[in-house]
């Protein structure tokens, strides 16, 4: 029984790791720019296809391909900022609609480039860490967990200790007051989009060998998007990051122990609970003017 629990815990930890990366990127973009990025799941998908193209098709070493995926999807984020969200800055609904358009373009490109078939990618390593007879952790999953911990710690350090991290937090709390400190809105938007997209891309790239890659794999991210954004609230960027990691953990643990439907119900109840107790979100304070 403890062994079953330990194994399930490891599975949940793995899933929560990559979902955290996706969710944190979403709240970062929402916090700084005030737009819900509907194409976020497709950025995750784009990261997975970077692995198909570079690692599976032409044999680039796995971690190098992941790094390339990070840069490529971060670049897609920059493109979205410049082409969609900046021209529509005063129009959050427009930004949302534009991101839906971008989602469709990315899906169509994936279909055109790779077809609709599922891609099964051979994992970079078949090694398994055997903790006991029934508790096993494939190294490819451990890579995902360790990468998520490292990336989220780096993000935390960036937000708390660096000049641009402060700028991002300031913009999320009060964009106008941030501008009055000499912080350029274009610059914080670029940074938030790059980091947010890159985190989604890295999550897609790292998990590509462990899931079936297909052009519609980003689909389920949208529900997560709404829940983490509301639970995370507006205002404190670090709070939103913590909330989205917590949500990812609760959701995946419930999914592993019960099932996905129950997890969605728990997630939505969590959301309702938070809205009743703290209408501005778990960590949010200020209203966005």
């Amino acid at each position: 029984m403890t062994e079953l629990l330990a194994q399930t815990g490891l599975n949940a930890l793995y899933a929560a790791s990559y979902i955290s990366l996706v969710a944190v990127g979403l709240v970062l973009i929402f916090g700084v720019m005030g737009v819900v990025n509907f194409a976020h799941g497709e950025l995750f998908m784009a990261g997975a296809y970077a692995i198909v193209a570079l690692y599976a098709d032409i044999g680039v070493p796995f971690l190098a391909a992941v790094a390339a995926g990070l840069v490529f999807v971060g670049g897609l984020g920059l493109l979205m900022e410049r082409a969609l969200f900046r021209p529509l800055r005063d129009n959050p609904l427009g930004g949302l609609v534009a991101s839906i358009g971008f989602l469709m373009i990315l899906q169509a490109l994936a279909v055109m480039g790779f077809g609709v078939r599922m891609e099964h990618i051979p994992p970079p390593t078949q090694d398994v860490i055997v903790l006991s007879e029934k508790v096993r952790l494939p190294v490819s999953r451990l890579v995902v967990i360790v990468s998520a911990v490292l990336l989220l710690s780096a993000l935390w350090y960036f937000l708390k200790r660096t000049r641009f991290g402060w700028a991002l937090r300031a913009s999320a709390q009060d964009p106008e007051a941030a501008a009055l400190q000499g912080i350029s809105i274009n610059q914080t938007a670029r940074i938030a989009m790059f980091i947010g997209a890159a985190l989604a891309g890295v999550a897609g790239a790292l998990t590509a060998p462990l899931v079936s890659v297909n052009p519609h794999m980003g689909h389920s991210v949208i529900v997560t998007a709404f829940i983490v954004i509301i639970v995370g609230g507006v205002g404190s960027l670090e709070g939103a990051v913590v909330a989205s990691v917590l949500y990812a953990f609760v959701h995946t643990i419930v999914t592993t122990f019960y099932d996905g439907v129950v997890a969605d119900i728990v997630g939505l109840s969590l959301l309702l609970g938070v809205l009743v107790v703290r209408p501005t979100g778990l960590f949010g304070t200020a209203d966005r003017a």
Partner: peptide
């Protein structure tokens, strides 16, 4: 210095001051 102070509520006093020196 804007009307209503507009300090960054979720930042510490010192972080607020550093933000002023952003440039």
């Amino acid at each position: 210095v804007p009307e209503g102070r507009r300090i960054f509520p979720e930042m510490t006093v010192e972080e607020n001051l550093h933000t002023g020196a952003f440039l």
